[in-house]
Design a protein around this nucleic acid. Sequence first.
DNA 1: GTCTATAGACCGATAGAC
DNA 2: GTCTATCGGTCTATAGAC
Lengths: 209, 209
Amino acid sequence: MNTSSAGANVVKISFKEQMLQAREDAIVDTVNRLLAEKGFDAMTVDEVAASVGIAKASLYKHFPSKEHLAAAAMVKVMQRAQAFIAGLPAGGPPLDQLKAVARWTMEVQLDGEMPSLPSQNSSLRAALMADRNYMDGLMDVSDRLGAWIEAAQANGSLNPGLPAIAVLYTLYARACDPVLEFLKAGGQHSRDEILEMVLSSCFDGLNAR
Amino acid sequence: MNTSSAGANVVKISFKEQMLQAREDAIVDTVNRLLAEKGFDAMTVDEVAASVGIAKASLYKHFPSKEHLAAAAMVKVMQRAQAFIAGLPAGGPPLDQLKAVARWTMEVQLDGEMPSLPSQNSSLRAALMADRNYMDGLMDVSDRLGAWIEAAQANGSLNPGLPAIAVLYTLYARACDPVLEFLKAGGQHSRDEILEMVLSSCFDGLNAR
DNA sequence: GTCTATAGACCGATAGAC
DNA sequence: GTCTATCGGTCTATAGAC
């Protein structure tokens, strides 16, 4: 095998992989949208295949089960979160960083891009816990948020009476806060107003200050 | 028909109805527990029948569909909420009343007695909206909470910058706040500590005061 | 003997999986 | 495109109350 044919081979493999990757991206995007729209249980694999425009059998060439499809969508969202966090201007007040992340999370949900998974489904939980990419992303995000939480508590901007883990969970919970969809469905407030209200109730609380 | 036979008839009917009512209560309690444990989609009608200890066909003598089973469970929870609200000492500070209701809601969830329904399921939504008892209960509770919210905002204890509807939704959302289950699963905090933390983050906010 | 309610087999639809 | 499992919902034979 000479250099030129080897080169062609390399290009061909790369191209093929690129196609596979592109289709996988299309699948994951579709799954992500369907998960956000209808939730895991209501989403069917047939629907995914039809929506992507490929045969159901082809889906199973990429992902071995419905759970793995959902896990792939979660991985992608987690990577988006990591990218957002990495893109934040470093050195800002930790409280502002936390607020920015909370706001971003809610924006993703309002935009219909946040997969909604049943927290009780055990097979799904197992698939997520077994997914290295997901768990690594989760750990990474948790570490970064945890550091900001502790820094914000240390500098007196965040309530030091709450355990950091409780604060972390409270921030994560904004990703599936039903208040957002309720207010959106009410139609009485703009997207920005909704974001401000929920962000305020989260950080400032319901009490008067 | 003479008086004595009429009397016997009345007693007999009453007894029969009592049996039916007792079984219906058993069904609703079982449904409530299963809904809290596994959610609507994962709960099967066969499972309900087996758990109650009756035949599935007998279930359908009481409730015409799975959705109506869930609606019945929701009605019962709503009635419990109404009873709790009615039992609150009248005349207290409205903010305290709201906190008491929020705490009660979270206790119900922590005790595994809060049905978890998918908010996206349209047939379930339709069944709930069509259920007079449920809607009446929801309106009643919303009216009472709404009055307290406005009173608390008027007396300066609750942030008047938030629309009352946003406050109401935020309180309702405590009934399905995943932070409770996360903290409980963590095992690092007692039930009371968890309640205090979430209640504090809800009313006082995450920020330092 | 009649009548109701039950138990449990059964059906059609649909999902995931291959 | 097929296969199998499972689910919501129905049907029928029967047991027991009266």
